[in-house]
């Protein structure tokens, strides 16, 4: 990459942001040790609920979307150009 790239697009800064992101995730994942979480339904009381539930639900949603995509995706001129159904 060229040096003229803006700071955000440089590989070195992207690496740095990944490290910061990873650090944040670890802190948040372990935060339940210090914070008493709600436990209304029995499940959210499990350690790191937000972390694993957030990860899993996003992951599962992408899988479902991809399966649906295999069935329902069409080229974007399927209904004609501009979607004008011509």
């Amino acid at each position: 990459m060229k040096d003229t790239d803006p700071w955000l697009a440089r590989p070195s800064s992207i690496r740095l942001m990944w490290w910061i992101f990873a650090g944040l995730l670890i802190v948040l994942g372990l935060a339940d040790a210090g914070v008493k979480q709600y436990n209304h339904f029995g499940v959210e009381g499990i350690f790191g609920f937000g972390a694993w539930f957030g990860f899993l639900s996003a992951f599962v949603m992408v899988i479902i979307a991809k399966v649906l995509a295999a069935l329902l995706k069409r080229p974007d001129d399927y209904y004609g150009r501009d979607g004008n159904d011509d």
């Binding site: 944040l24 995730l25 948040l28 994942g29 609920f49 990860f55 639900s57 996003a58």
Partner: peptide, 16 residues
């Protein structure tokens, strides 16, 4: 608790 829960949910979905 609410802030931590929300940040966990959001950032781990961002990780995905």
């Amino acid at each position: 608790a609410h802030v931590v829960l929300q940040l966990q949910l959001l950032l781990f979905s961002g990780l995905v």
